[in-house]
Each structure stands twice: as C-alpha cells, then as structure tokens.
Amino acid sequence: MARTLRFNIFRYNPRNPASVAHMREYSLGETESMTLFIALNRIREEQDPSLQFDFCCRAGICGACAMVVNGKPGLACHTKTKDMPGEISLMPLPFFKLVGDLSVDTGSWFRGMYQKVESWVHTSKTFDPAAEEERMDNELAEKIYELDRCIECGCCVAACGTALMREDFLGAVALNRVARFLIDPRDERTEKEYFDVVGSDDGVFGCMGLLACEDVCPKDIPLQDQLGMLRRKMALAAVRGMLPKFLRKD
C-alpha cells in the first residue's frame, strides 16, 4: 500500500518582512523509488512554488542539497523515502547563513575556508609545458584522491559541536583539506607552516572529539583519522622547539 507522507518543512523568507519562521506541513503520496529530490520538487510544483531548496546534480556528487533530515544532517538527494518513517521533518543546515527555507549559503563560508588554509598546492616550481609530468606512485595518487573526495556539502560543520560554539573553528572539512595537501609531495609547505594554519584552538586543538562529523559525512571520509594524524603531527611540531637539541628528531 502506498503511504501518504507527512512533511514538516521549515519556512522563512528573510526577504519578506511579513515572513515569520515556522514549520509547515505538506502531504504527499509516496511513489516507487522516491527520494527527497523527487518529493521536494513535487511539493514545490504541485503545492507551494515559493518553497526554496537547493539541488544540483541530484546524484550525491555535488553536495548542494545538504539539509537536516529528521534531526540529522545529510544529502536530500541520497535519502530514499522508503527508508524513512511516514513523518519527515526538514530543516536548513545550521551554522551557514540562511538564504530562505531549506536553502543556505555554503559558498561564502567555503571560499573563506580556502583562504584560511590556503587550499592549494604551494610550490616554488614553475610549469614547463615541454616537460614530462613529474612521476607519482599510483598508490599515493589514490590516497590523495581519497581525501579529495570531499564534496563540501557542509554536513560535518553543521553537525559539529565546536563549530556551533566557536564560529572561527575550521571544522573537519578544513582539517581534511589540510591533510590532503600534507600527504601531497607537490605541496612544499613545511610542518611549521601547517602548524601556523591548524595548530590552534580554531584548528586541531579546538575539536572536542564528539566526532559527529564522521558520522554524518555522506562520502564516508575517515575524518577522525585525519584529525588524529594532524593532532599528532602538530603536537610534535609544537614541542619540538622546546626540546633540547639532542632530543629533536627533524
């Protein structure tokens, strides 16, 4: 028997002075293979054309449609209604600036993050178009790609207790980004330079270890491992300067 789903959706349009934040209920007949992508578009087209939400690839690749689904951040396009109870509540991601309803501005925050961690390969070399590419071990290439798989959906930051309390906290996504460049031999940054980026309470030492980031990551990136690795490296980098010379291991 097809179910009738009840959706409770957060509504607020900051551009409309008359708008008040509230939850609104919609009913929708469930169809086969229904995802929240299909459901939300049907609600917008059939019931409420002002409803704001973000989808782009609708294939779990681009990260546009992160929202809080029944209390947990996740990708709406990934969420099959058959895995859900008959009542579904949808809220925008916290932490990011609200655009309206379920739509938030992740772009501004992420561009700020790129600048903070200098999310690019730092090299003193210049590209030589006539030269063969520098060789790289395939296993290492795959390791880098593993960490490059992040889709910047924002779920990890939205689920992060530290980020909610401390707005300058870099969050798991940024720490993972740093880890990605740390293992990439093309990036010439030293441990000290990385320390300057993440070796503070806004970085690795701010994390309270609740690890919701890893629980909600739709790409199953081992965020916990990256955090641990960075913490060890940064802690060592911090004490190294204090040790007598004969104890230092450079």
Binding site: W120, F127, P129, E133, M136, A141, E142, D148, D184, R186
Partner: peptide, 17 residues
C-alpha cells in the same frame, strides 16, 4: 600539455603501475 598542467596544479591522476 593541459593534462600535465593539471598534474602540476594538484590533480591526483591515476598513474602507470
């Protein structure tokens, strides 16, 4: 040239094993 430039900028292309 374009592929090598991408490698230079950081793309983790799969490599010959």
């Amino acid at each position: 040239i374009a592929m090598r430039q991408m490698a230079f900028w950081g793309v983790p292309w799969n490599r010959v094993v």
